[in-house]
Nucleic acid binder design. Structure first.
Length: 499
RNA sequence: GCCGCUAUGGUGUAAGUGGUUAACACGCAGCCCUCUCAAGGCUGAGACUACGGGUUCGAGUCCCGUUAGCGGUACCA
């Protein structure tokens, strides 16, 4: 008997899928899954000028990557324009909307905001005159239309009273009708406008809950007016707080660029589940201290009542190469990397190595076990999948850079010219190349030479990986194996002392 | 300009219907572990709950005002 939940994510393809959109999509998806409802993807491509096929693909790709599968769609709003026009015409016939023959305003070089303010000021000065065409007899208007005159269709907004609705997140919302202008439904060139289109589509798709960004909150009153005029019950509304840029600045695709794009996170080595987990916590809380939530837990615990009202800062920092995005997102991703099962992680790392050109088929064949162990060895100190080839290169390839600071720090001591080859010889003689055997050999060698083990341990790390940081040294020896270890030790002699 | 929304440490969030030293996570600092870096464990710094008034025995929690940020206001979406 209970009506099934039907929700939709309705992005306009004027840009890639950004974190704000992704979060809106996610909350809709969670809500649908939680209530065994239907999640619909509807592309709002009525603005032909700014929409593009590439963006549509980008959005679909981003959602697929995040695992937000739609039950219906993608549906394209542009294919329903006839219905939108028909609805408006019906409203005119019923006297709920009217043709406005006022010539279309010429766009000047002022900004939109300036134009709005200018218009408001002019109106205040002239006194609030109603649109002269509002009461033009419908027959006469129709006659003029038939004669080829152009006109926009506007909705008749009540002259007094207040509009009121209950928002699931923001509570009771009120707005005086006098603050709402008779809105344009259809442009004079016949193009349906946003507010009309969404409402008609949402009715057609039997949407029960409209979950979207708070930027639509005040315009919801207009849409409710359209629902009423059309004689359709309005759905429930739940508006989501906006996500803002550092400094509570507003998030802008143009200004902040790709760092707010979902695909950027994919390309930088994020795990979908981790990003989903992070995004879910931006503006929502389960009400407990639990921060790590699996997809299933998210679905179980999600509720619109747990959504909070204030906007959340997404603390990215595109200029910082290390902490390029929100530190908590990076932490969360690292958390997933080190705790997820190897069976899931290994294929992800494999893909990443393929992209970086470091993949060898042996990693999935004879070297499969070795590959798993190496991934396991490295994962504790990596925060993104990308780190596996950026930082982990020396483990998977013989071509890698020696970092200057590391060389300076660990290969400075002149004695290493003799010690490195000496250690190489001694390791070459170790029977079984295991962690303990290598350690014993190295320590014995150091004792024989009268040097501290630390000297050769650190030097070896740089000799073998070019880095000053990494896993425990004996694990590295084992991971690289005898021949490569010995070879790299000998090769590193040329770096000793120099810069 | 007008209308609306929001306001808890640097960031994300907690704190049933007002009741103790404002909690957790990230980040930061230090210590432990240690061959380095992470991870892990422990400790700590950091919030007069935007500001100002009320109501109350008692307010982060209720009311009013101010400020700031954001949104809307368009023949954009």
């Amino acid at each position: 008997m209970t009506e099934t939940v039907r929700v939709r994510f309705a992005p306009s393809p004027t840009g890639y899928l950004h974190v704000g959109g992704a979060r809106t999509a996610l909350f809709n998806w969670l809500f649908a899954r939680k209530h065994n409802g239907t999640f619909i993807l509807r592309i709002e491509d009525t603005d032909i000028q700014r929409s593009s096929e590439a963006m549509v693909q980008g959005i679909i790709e981003g959602m697929r990557w995040l695992g937000l599968d739609a039950d219906e769609g993608p549906l394209f709003q542009s294919s329903f324009v006839e219905q939108h026009r028909a609805a408006a015409r019906r409203l005119v016939e019923e006297g709920k909307a009217y043709y406005d023959f006022t010539p279309k305003e010429q766009t000047d070089d002022r900004t939109i905001k300036e134009r709005i303010v200018g218009r408001a000021l002019a109106q205040a000065e002239a006194g609030k005159g109603r649109n002269p065409y509002r009461d033009l007899p419908t027959e006469e208007a129709l006659r003029r239309i038939d004669a080829g005159e152009q006109a926009a269709i506007r909705l008749k907004v009540p002259e007094s009273g207040v509009s009121r609705f209950e928002d699931i997140v923001y509570g009771t919302q009120e707005r005086d009708y006098t603050d709402i202008e008779d809105l344009v439904l259809i442009r004079s060139d016949g193009h349906p406008l946003y507010n009309l289109s969404v409402v008609v589509d949402d009715i057609e798709m039997r949407i029960t809950h409209v979950i979207r960004g708070q930027d639509h909150l005040t315009n919801t009153h207009k849409q409710i007016l359209i629902y009423e005029a059309l004689g359709a019950p309005a759905p429930q509304f739940g508006h989501l707080p906006l996500i803002s840029a550092p400094g509570k600045e507003k998030l802008s695709k143009r200004k902040h660029g790709e760092v707010v794009s979902v695909t950027f996170y994919r390309d930088r080595g994020f795990i979908p589940d981790a990003l989903v987990n992070f995004l879910a916590l931006l503006g929502w809380s389960p009400g407990t201290d639990q921060e790590r939530l699996s997809r299933q837990e998210l679905i179980e615990q999600f509720s619109l009542e747990g959504v909070n009202k204030s906007s959340a800062v997404f603390n990215f920092n595109e200029s910082d190469p290390r902490d390029w995005t929100d530190p908590k997102a990076l932490w969360m991703n690292g958390e997933y990397i080190r705790s997820m099962s190897l069976d899931e992680l290994v294929p992800m790392v494999s893909e990443e190595l393929k992209k970086a050109g470091l993949w060898r088929d042996d990693f999935a064949a004879g070297g499969r076990e070795w590959f798993r162990q190496t991934v396991d060895l490295l994962r504790a100190r990596y925060r993104t999948i990308r780190d596996f080839w950026e930082l982990g290169r020396p483990y998977f390839s013989d071509e890698f850079e020696y970092e200057q600071p590391a060389v300076k720090k660990n290969l400075k001591d002149e004695r290493l010219r003799e010690l490195l080859p000496g250690l190489a010889d001694s390791l070459d003689r170790v029977e079984e190349f295991t962690h303990d055997n290598v350690e014993a050999a190295l320590r014995a060698y150091c004792e024989g030479q009268g040097v501290k083990a630390g000297l050769l341990i650190n030097a070896s790390r740089t000799a073998l990986t070019g880095q000053a940081v990494g896993p425990g040294m004996f694990d590295i020896f084992v991971a690289l194996g005898r021949s490569r270890s010995v070879e790299r030790l000998r090769k590193a002699v040329r770096l000793v002392g120099g810069v």
